[in-house]
C-alpha cells in the first residue's frame, strides 16, 4: 500500500511536471520563437526574471513545480538504486536521506521564490 501510494504520486507528479515544466521550457528556451513573458528581452535577463517573479502565478507554480520535480526525480533515482541490489540497510538509508535532502532543497527553493516575489513587488511599489 505504501509503495502504491508513493508510485501513484510519482505518476501524478510526472503529469504535472509535463504541463508546467513544458510552460517553463517554452518561456525560457523558446523565447526567440515564442517570446512569452520575456519583456521583449532575453528570458534570463534580470528585467524578465523580475517581471515573472512578481506575478503570483509564477511564484505559486514555481513552488509547486519545485516540489513535484524534486519528488519525481528523487523517486526515479531511488527506483534505479533499489534495482541496483544495494541491500536492505542502504534502501532504508536512501529513503531517509532522499526525504531530508529533498526537503532541504525544497526549503531553499521556496525561500528564493518568496523573497524574490516580495522584493519584486516592493520594487514596483
Amino acid at each position: 500500500m505504501k509503495e502504491t501510494r508513493n508510485w501513484t504520486w510519482h505518476i501524478v507528479a510526472g503529469a504535472f511536471i509535463f504541463v508546467f515544466l513544458g510552460l517553463h521550457m517554452i518561456v525560457m528556451h523558446l523565447d526567440d520563437v515564442v517570446g512569452l513573458f520575456t519583456s521583449g528581452v532575453g528570458a534570463t535577463d534580470w528585467e524578465s526574471v523580475l517581471g515573472r517573479s512578481r506575478m503570483s502565478f509564477f511564484a505559486v507554480t514555481y513552488v509547486l513545480l519545485l516540489g513535484a520535480a524534486l519528488y519525481h526525480g528523487l523517486f526515479g533515482l531511488r527506483s534505479i538504486l533499489f534495482e541496483s541490489n544495494v541491500g536492505r540497510a542502504w534502501q532504508k538509508a536512501i529513503n531517509v536521506l532522499f526525504w531530508l535532502g529533498g526537503l532541504c532543497l525544497f526549503a531553499v527553493g521556496v525561500f528564493q521564490a518568496v523573497t524574490t516575489f516580495l522584493h519584486a513587488n516592493a520594487a514596483v511599489g
Binding site: 500500500m1 509503495e3 502504491t4 527506483s79 533499489f82
Partner: peptide, 15 residues
C-alpha cells in the same frame, strides 16, 4: 496479493 506484489520490489520495479 497487494501486500506481496505492491511493494518496493514488486510491480513498481517494472518499467
Amino acid at each position: 496479493r497487494r501486500e506481496i506484489a505492491g511493494t518496493a520490489h514488486g510491480a513498481y520495479r517494472c518499467h
